[in-house]
Amino acid sequence: MKKPGIFLPTIVALLLVSGCNDSGQVKDNTPPQALSEPALQTPATDKRTTSEIIANAKTLHLQARQLGHAWSTTQDHITEAEKLLAAKDMVSAQVSALRAELSASASIAQSHSEQNAWQDRFPK
């Protein structure tokens, strides 16, 4: 009954120490990798109209801009969706609109994950 009480803090402490005991000057050495787009919800399962999806994508994109993290790809997807919608290519328009929405959401998520992460990327 007493053993877990002894070992648990020791293991946690060792894990924390070993994770922070590197000799490099820049802590975050993770290679840059493109953020992958999450799988699209199939257009058939999304009950919203394409116009509604585009409107939501625009709102999220504006939010990302205000956070200083807007992606040019979001803008490209929105433009493409609007163009396809005007051309009455409904299926492709909906796919582009969903891509715009996902791209905008990912850019907002990036701004949140970078809140503190940036501090480990400069030599100390």
């Binding site: 840059p32 493109a34 990327r121």
Partner: peptide, 18 residues
């Protein structure tokens, strides 16, 4: 300079420091 941006997820430091 240290913040990752864009869908490629690069910071200025990615190229010019790392």
């Amino acid at each position: 300079y240290s913040t990752r941006r864009g869908h490629l997820n690069f910071a200025c430091t990615s190229c010019h420091i790392q």
